[in-house]
Design a binder for these strands. Structure first.
Lengths: 214, 214
DNA sequence: AATCACCTAGGTATAAATACCTAGTTAGCT
DNA sequence: AGCTAACTAGGTATTTATACCTAGGTGATT
């Protein structure tokens, strides 16, 4: 199937850095089969613009004020099933990418990607395919997904978040109105699930997975 | 003093993201008093190009492969005293900015800065002035510099790094062939200097200050 | 020679984390 | 009704971290 000029791909750009916006705009001005409908600086306005403009593809940054790209992706793909989201991020951890896929993203390209590959990725997701940077694909293969049983429950995430904020088990117990024994049990389960055996690695896990503000 | 077109500001761009490069190039193509001499993708090549091209100003990203922007800035400002370095980063912590200033940077603008302000900042540092994003200036004021006595010694940085990698005091003692009492004493001194009173905050400090790989 | 910062090391005591147990309650699902 | 996951809570023992104390050795500086 050859795509003619008459069926351009409509695109919404979401990134909070003016220079990245500028680079993307400059890039896509070279391709006559891509039409940039708009640009957003954060997740909130991206959401509004997506619903208003109904673009074929959204190129979505992740780290942004107001609402991050993953959360925005989740809402957008739910409300606009025909709009494909391509994540454009500097984060390259396997679980980060998996949470993006979980949120409904059709692809994931890193910020150090060339303009040609970004263009190619947009074409791919517009056609209903997926596209991942080669290093991302490699990371996904090298870091197999966790078993369902090893995912943290909501309560465990709360506990881990508080732990990583520097609260002791007693303080957490007071905060949540439960026994410090319970907090202790949660900590044990969390470490067991994540295969982590010291507090320090727990903190690093929490930071790397966005459970707390750095 | 009015600057005519005949004394253009020569510029070297250093950033590892093609889209940022593109945005900067597109931006500066609008200003006829700025001439971009070249673009580098990392600190190492930036160093070589700086020496080769001797630009008036270098717009320098920080997070890059091969050599980070702060280290590159330190070497460049030492070897090329007439070349001004303007840091262009997404990191906005006071100590990060201070280490950039310490390395010889003439200014610091954040990645969410508009193209107009980046242009203005380049003009400022080219004239020998400094320029800092307003939020950076605010951060610097709100977070006064640490006293000389509160800076970590080399040994303390080593200890902190090992602590933040998850080693216990005993393990660190074994690693460094010293008594765990000594490690303990260092830990106490570190926490005292940094005004930190729990392990978790120590780990967060280490991560936020680049003492360990995330 | 004296001072000072730094690294070193030990004693003693308490608080916190961790390991290894058990077990009740509740909500949801089959 | 029975099963399961998740949250809850306790006992006991050990290890680790932390607080507060002292103090010797060394190298640089004055």
């Amino acid at each position: 199937m050859i795509q003619g000029k008459e069926d351009k791909i409509s695109l919404l750009l979401v990134d909070d850095h003016p220079m990245v916006q500028g680079g993307l705009l400059a890039c896509f001005s070279y391709y006559d089969d891509i039409e940039v409908l708009g640009v957003s600086n954060d997740g909130e306005t991206a959401l509004a613009k997506a619903i208003e403009l109904k673009p074929d593809v959204i190129l979505m940054d992740v780290s942004m004020p107001s609402m991050n790209g993953i959360d925005a992706t989740e809402i957008i793909t739910e409300q606009l099933p025909d709009t494909k989201v391509l994540i454009f991020s500097m984060h390259d951890s396997a679980e980060f990418v998996r949470s993006a896929i979980q949120a409904g993203a059709s692809g994931y390209v890193l910020k150090d990607t060339s303009s040609e590959e970004v263009y190619y990725a947009i074409k791919a997701v517009a056609k209903g395919n997926t596209h991942f940077s080669s290093s991302i694909a490699k990371t996904l293969i090298e870091n197999p997904a966790k078993l369902e049983n090893d995912k943290l429950t909501t309560r465990e995430q709360v506990i881990l978040s508080l732990v990583a904020q520097g609260l002791s088990s007693k303080e957490i117990a007071r905060e949540l109105n439960i026994s410090f024994r319970t907090v202790d049990a949660h900590r044990r389960n969390i470490k067991s699930k994540l295969n982590i055996d010291c507090l320090v690695d727990l903190v690093r896990y929490a930071i790397n997975h966005g459970l707390i503000e750095e």
